[in-house]
Design a protein around this nucleic acid. Sequence first.
DNA 1: ACGGAGATGGACT
DNA 2: GTCCATCTCCGTT
Length: 198
Amino acid sequence: MDRRSLDAALENAVGAARALLGCVLVRTTHEGVRTTRIVETEAYPQGDPACHAFGGRTKRNRTLFGPRGRAYVYRIHRSFCLNVATGPDGCGEGVLIRAVEPVDGIELMESARARATVGRRMPTGYNVANGPGKLCQALDIDSGFDGVDLLTVERNAPLRLLPRRTAPEMLVTPRVGISVATEAPLRFVVRDSLWASR
DNA sequence: ACGGAGATGGACT
DNA sequence: GTCCATCTCCGTT
């Protein structure tokens, strides 16, 4: 997969959720580079009552209606969640990134998580980024990233999405943590990954 | 100006 | 399994 076919894969949310498994998410700061591989996603397609865009355009969900490939970041309780906007401009859909596997810079992820969880148990090992809020902690992603173009060609961009080399085997299940459309098989997990949520 | 709800995570029984 | 921390946005007054 090249950059162009990754962009094309974001044409619709369900295809994008499948195509994003195995793709690479890179976070660059002054501390260094954190490289991860996406192992769990959820699709929130247009017209889905569980999608944030379902009720129409608002200030919070506006990036879902923007061009595909932008980060849609929102807050839930104490956590942030990272989504990739998909579909044609104005469409209002996206893919939630639910878990990533560390490839490089895991020590930076662990210290970021320790920083974000002061007074609580030190998160380690497979728990470092196995949830949507955890991955945002591990990669220091907050609402400041809402709207940024993840497909940028800038090599030093703070947050970048890169195409995968090969398609991993995947598992399909219902989505987690929602109260409507709970049965729809729209969660995608890299089969046998130890880094996915449970 | 107000109240409720939330695509979560961690601690605890 | 249950509880709840903590905050932004949104729909309603």
